[in-house]
Design a binder for these strands. Sequence first.
DNA 1: AGAACAATTCGATTAAACTCGAATTGGCAC
DNA 2: GTGCCAATTCGAGTTTAATCGAATTGTTCT
Lengths: 114, 114
Amino acid sequence: MDAAATIAALGALAHDTRLAVFRLLVERGPEGLPAGAIAHSVNLAPSSLSFHLQLLTQAHLITQRRLGRQLIYAAQFETMTALVAYLTENCCGGPICAAICAPVCAPEPERKSA
Amino acid sequence: MDAAATIAALGALAHDTRLAVFRLLVERGPEGLPAGAIAHSVNLAPSSLSFHLQLLTQAHLITQRRLGRQLIYAAQFETMTALVAYLTENCCGGPICAAICAPVCAPEPERKSA
DNA sequence: AGAACAATTCGATTAAACTCGAATTGGCAC
DNA sequence: GTGCCAATTCGAGTTTAATCGAATTGTTCT
């Protein structure tokens, strides 16, 4: 992950709505959620949400796939892993921290209800 | 670390110049660097840099202390640790990743020259 | 005190981000 | 094909970010 990709990812997460959306999708796991359900959850106009989803997609933090007439969005865990790795390696005190911390971001195998 | 603080930190790092500044200060360690040296390093007008330093400071990613007539800025590693922890816990697949990854951000005990 | 220096705050300008309603695309059912 | 629904793209408006020169604050030295 280079600096440009890192900035894109950081910028994509550095917003109220988008962070909420991303956390929602992380909770949801690989199954994902259709745009409509997300829009309802964050209480935002569909076109506004589309804007944010596009940003998250461009940063490779989420993926998009079609299911019938709806578009399903899901968290892309590899990017998050790479982001955390970049931060620990480059911004977190160097190799020491990176050596201690080898994060492997993955969806929770089993989720307990909230 | 709550969502608001997280967004502030992410937003502060989500910029070309500011990420470069922060990385520079991380490399430098607790000793820190005066504003002038930073401005020279990133090749930016002093007033512009001040703006960015203020943002990083407000996000608690760096600290400011006075030494004679210059202001020394240094990375605040605890905040970075907290940020990475937040990301792994809330955005990275939940407890699994968080359990694997317990990052302890700290300055490198000994730095080799650039 | 007065000159010189480091860095910030102020004021104004330019560029980018965010929001939303209206119009469009793509897919399903009849 | 027609109607309908999910979601996006388009166009316009508002807000916020980023840049810089000029003026100000705080500190040192003589």
